[in-house]
Design a protein around this nucleic acid. Structure first.
Length: 421
RNA sequence: GUGGUCGUAGCUCAGUCAGGUAGAGCACCGCGUUGUGGUCGCGGAUGUCGCGGGUUCAAAUCCCGUCGGUCACCCCA
């Protein structure tokens, strides 16, 4: 803790068992959920040419203020990925897989933000992206998969917020109306919102300042400006969600932070999280992104879910507990003959998880260690056992006592007592 | 990035208001005789009181700075 010693960089943390095990379990559950829908895993580099991310939008903090960018030794301007959609679409444009293309991912992302609980400079997201069709039923599939996943985790109090942001054919008229509306009231807006208005009127809707609320409440709605086709698309998304019994709230003010979103946009808020960092996931359509990255004009939709925040929400709801990690057996060796060394290796080869005590400690100390390990059985080897070429198998959890087992029968005896992992 | 708040043993915290050079619980280690843990009893180790500077005879305690956590805004997962 002294200033001369190192600590994890601001906004980052060390995660170890059992939390790390829990995180991996969560990711496994996510993989299972989306692989049932035929999404395949994609793994992209953790850094890209910065241009890949500049398409996220010039009015977003993620791009303008929060990028971890650097020059590599050849002078290329690179950046650690602040999100994964852009990387996935870059991979799509580069490889041109057959359509529709459905992928899922997990991994760390980086944003230079001021940290807070649930907001880190390195954070983990899981997500999916699907490119190649504008079918509104794809929107429904994507959204419902996220909802399914929360449900499988045991999260109950998650609200799905839904909106349509229009597209280049109808959004400009809305933006104009919105800008005019806010300009007429700029004197009543907060200073911050007045600045935001200059770069992106849409995002003023996102302001949480009390001063802005009455003005935002009466602002024009995108829904009134959607083209007939998009109104139809949005209607089919909603009826599809109804059909699958995925409940949602229409949220006409929902504005996503990244500029590439079009049409369907959504966000999941965990109500158990009391802080303002309660968005545990979000996503939407980005029909122009592939083209803007130099590829064919291909529609796409996806979402990203914040693993760190989801786990905080699980804690708040008291669900998805940490897995208990205990070995099957724990070896106590007081023989002075190094039996533990070969015995643990033999047990592991046979499929058991096995740990042991070290440093030739006393019987009492080794028994204590075995108890603490959580293992259901302790294997005791002393001089007597060595002489009899056997092992004492002791029940550490129940009351069945202990039995002397011939070394040759040990594995089969243990197989009768527990299932190897 | 702006503002608030907190920072004492591995963990949770008391002590800070009224300055006199560190405590509790849990965890850890050992002992309770001959090879047996979990309960109990006894004993033990561990902190330059986040870091740096200032005021003072004297600072965990007061002042300034800094780093980190956290809360609100901002932003977003």
């Amino acid at each position: 803790m002294a200033s001369s010693s190192f600590q994890a960089p601001k906004g980052t943390r060390d995660i170890f068992a059992p939390q790390s095990t829990r995180q991996r379990t969560l990711i496994d559950l996510f993989a299972d959920t989306v692989e049932r829908a035929n999404y395949g895993q994609i793994s992209t580099p953790i850094f890209e040419e910065i241009g890949v991310f500049l398409r996220l939008g010039e009015s977003t903090d993620v791009v303008t203020k929060e990028m971890y960018d650097f020059e590599d030794k050849d002078g290329r301007h690179m950046a650690l990925r602040p999100e994964l959609t852009a990387s996935v679409v870059r991979a799509f444009v580069q490889h041109r897989p057959t359509l529709p293309w459905k992928v899922w991912y997990e991994g760390p992302q980086f944003r230079y933000e001021k940290p807070q609980a649930g907001r880190y400079r390195q954070f983990t997201q899981v997500g999916i992206e699907a490119l190649g069709t504008s079918d509104p039923e794809l929107d429904v599939e994507v959204i419902s998969l996220a909802a399914d996943f929360y449900q499988r985790l045991g999260l109950r109090d998650v609200t799905l917020l839904l909106n349509s942001l229009g597209d280049p054919t109808c959004r400009p008229a809305y933006l104009e109306a919105l800008e005019t509306y806010f300009r007429d009231r700029i004197g009543d807006l907060s200073e911050q919102s007045a600045v935001t208005l200059e770069t992106n009127p849409l995002r003023v809707l996102d302001s949480k300042r009390p001063q802005d609320q009455p003005i935002i409440d009466d602002a024009p709605l995108m829904a009134d400006y959607l083209s007939p086709e998009l109104t139809e698309h949005f209607g089919r998304v909603r009826s599809g969600l109804d059909q699958l019994e995925v409940s949602y709230e229409l949220s006409p003010r929902l504005v996503r932070g990244l500029d590439y979103y079009t049409l369907t946009t959504f966000e999941f808020a965990a109500n158990a999280l009391t802080s303002s960092q309660n968005a545990v996931g979000g996503g939407g359509r980005y029909d122009g992104l592939a083209a803007s990255l130099g590829g064919p004009d291909t529609p796409g939709i996806g979402f990203a879910l914040g693993v760190d925040r989801i786990l905080l929400a699980c804690d708040a709801e008291g669900t998805f507990p940490e897995p208990t990690t205990a070995p099957d057996v724990f070896v106590i060796d007081v023989s002075g003959a190094n039996v533990a060394l070969s015995l643990t290796a033999e047990l592991r080869t046979a499929g058991f998880t096995a740990d042991r005590a070290w440093d030739n400690r006393s019987m009492k100390a080794q028994m204590k260690a075995s108890d603490r390990s959580g293992a259901p059985y302790g294997l005791i080897i002393g001089e007597d056992e060595v002489a009899a070429n056997s092992v004492t198998v002791r029940d550490l959890r129940g009351d069945t006592g202990q039995q002397l087992v011939a070394r040759d029968d040990l594995i089969s005896t243990l197989l009768g007592l527990l299932d190897p992992k």
